[in-house]
Design a protein around this nucleic acid. Sequence first.
DNA 1: CGCCGAATCAACCGAATGGTTGATGGGGCG
DNA 2: CGCCCCATCAACCATTCGGTTGATTCGGCG
Lengths: 230, 230
Amino acid sequence: MIRVLLVDDHPVVRAGLKAMLEDPAIPSEGPASDDTQGIRVVAEASDGAAALEELRRRQTLGEDIDLVLMDLQMGDGMDGATATRKIRQGEGGVRPVPVLVLTTYDSDSDILSALEAGASGYMLKDAESERIRSAVRAAAAGETALAPEVAARLVGRLRNPVPQLSAREVEILELLATGLSNRALARALFISEATVKTHLVHIYAKLGVDNRTAAITTAVQQKIIRVPDA
Amino acid sequence: MIRVLLVDDHPVVRAGLKAMLEDPAIPSEGPASDDTQGIRVVAEASDGAAALEELRRRQTLGEDIDLVLMDLQMGDGMDGATATRKIRQGEGGVRPVPVLVLTTYDSDSDILSALEAGASGYMLKDAESERIRSAVRAAAAGETALAPEVAARLVGRLRNPVPQLSAREVEILELLATGLSNRALARALFISEATVKTHLVHIYAKLGVDNRTAAITTAVQQKIIRVPDA
DNA sequence: CGCCGAATCAACCGAATGGTTGATGGGGCG
DNA sequence: CGCCCCATCAACCATTCGGTTGATTCGGCG
């Protein structure tokens, strides 16, 4: 029996995962084996901080958790990648437990940040239930479980690595996103307009675009910057 | 008994909604009343086209559907708003049925397009299960069910003379956010570059900005548009 | 019918942006 | 020390963008 802690901010998704994990549509044939052992959702949390708290509480009670199923995007509170890192590093008095990330998007930066945080796997929410169950079993057994789409992205990234923006370039991108002109940008950063243009050219090249608008959306998509607050 | 057709491209979400709708955590007290009548998910579909097909099929068989629960964003195939419009207008040989939209985002354009398409309600996926069930009951009874956040947006929009952009202007903004130049914009919309510029001037005026970059961030902040998907 | 707003287009202008080449200085690294 | 990357700046040019004026068509509305 694999004991799972579910972390997702949407009650609907928690209910769906619980149903999927606990009620296999096709019961295992033949005698029970390790490969088809049952899965039980024994705890749930709606954000990263609550997940850490719940994990610690369960472990203190001697009710060990075998696996954490974690969403990455969570409205407010600690995000999934941060929570994953803390769990894997045993912060806050928890014993490290495998974390399987299960989320909606497969952006490069999401995948990278999750895996760097120590996730044992990365599945997408549009997966069929049997896929998700086998990923849970694999992750609980200490193996790595990647959705095919995710694996493909990783391979693609190895082939042509994403050019890294310098700190200055990111700084410029952030101001760019507020709608400043080159001149305003120059004044804000105490540099000349010429320098701003040079930076922009570098940014365009690294992002594979050819104008400021595309640079902003691309940067937002790749989570290099965020849309500035209102 | 309310008979529901579930439309969502994610198996996880379908399973979650089914579990939530059919297994009320708190069984109704006292004798059964109309208000607490049961809900049964009798059919599912993973995109808009399949939903129409399924609805028609069930109605032909005499197995009427009382309500369609519809997601707006669906990976490929017909999107939710279009499917909602077709169902409400009885296209494709279906009898109109109330449609409750249940989605993740609450952007103005999403809400408006769903309601204009004839949706009976608009709920967010992060809602608690009892909220969703009561929205289903209300919508099936012909009432309008809006999530509080959605209702708040609507009244806020009535108070604030939110500079109302025309449909065409929003369309332009959305393409603008992908980084297209005026010329590319013109080609994409089969209009002249002059017209694009005219629209942009109007957009800038309504949003209180003076260039395209600021227009995009402002529009995103005010949830007039969303950052385009990667 | 006349009015108005939305959408379309044209022509024009100045300003901003993009793209290039080339140059300087400072850090880090083998 | 030499090499390379980063950040800085200059000058130049073509293209694009922002803004204006004016015009046409079409649909809705009083």
